[in-house]
Amino acid sequence: MSRSRVSPGLAGIAGGWLLLIILAAWATPTTVPIPDLARAGYPPFQAPHWLGTDPQGLDVGWSLLQGSRTVVLISVPAALLTLLLGTGLGSAAGFWGNRLALTRARAVAGAGLLTSGLLFWAQLAAFPILGALFLLLAGSLEALLRRTRWGRQPHFLPLDAALSACSALLDSIPLLLLVVAVASVQRPSVSGIVSLLALTCWTTPARLMRAATLQVAVQPYLEAARMTGLTDLQLLRRHIWPNTWQVAAVRFPMTVAALISLETTLAFLGIGLAPETPSWGRILSAVRQAPTAWWLVVWPGLALIVTLLSLHVLSRWLQDRMDVTNTSNNLLT
């Protein structure tokens, strides 16, 4: 199926806008401006507030600039973490499938180490030196079992099944509801919301990465490389990732876009971030107090739409460049 390619001019405009956003996020001072109470709810196109003020008397243009900082600081790290987690888990699941082999000796020693650590966690926290003792015991158990025939036989870990069960469980609740529920439990903070977003959004990149890895893993050249005696990690690094990383790269702008719309939705609802954090969603939510103030919707709405469209264009452009097909993004936020 032929698809129209993104023209270089459009890609340039999109890239330029995104650069502007990053520049604004980097250059805007963090100090909270003094509200101009005499001109609260002031319409735009008048000095000194060219984009108007909100009902609290804050300048909309200034809030927009400061909101871009929140956009960049939350969505980009969250997208990077999401992709790292998703690519790692997805390519592991695709590469090893349900047959990640361990010797039985190692499996028993590992399980023993894990259970003893769980059982005696309080003692471990009080005397960390105990950890060394546990490690020593597990190591000697492994060395002992390795000498028996039973211990040398392989034991398979169902990595793929475990991962797909995890992602099915995560996907059974819509993302927005999950984030709303968890955000109600934890204290509002930037690092908290970033890790929450990363921990809930990794399933889509993991699924894409798993499919890409499965496609590469059956190629004859991989069989040949395995025959030369490369270890699993070497195979992954030298022969699989060079052919699959484009999938993650194309996914990056889409992930950022999804996270931006999720973040602004949360700010709009007033969930997850401290209420004084400047955000485009928060400017928009002020319109509920002043329904006639169209400028509270138009400016942040335009900024948001242009940013999201630019990210979509960027993703399409990367697809053209790298020649990978990407499934459309259907997160509803």
């Binding site: 939705t265 969603g281 319109v287 919707v297 709405g301 948001l304 459309s328 509803l332």
Partner: peptide
């Protein structure tokens, strides 16, 4: 598709 729900609804 690019517009988030809250923006469409507010508009």
């Amino acid at each position: 598709q690019a517009a988030p729900l809250f923006l469409t609804a507010t508009t």
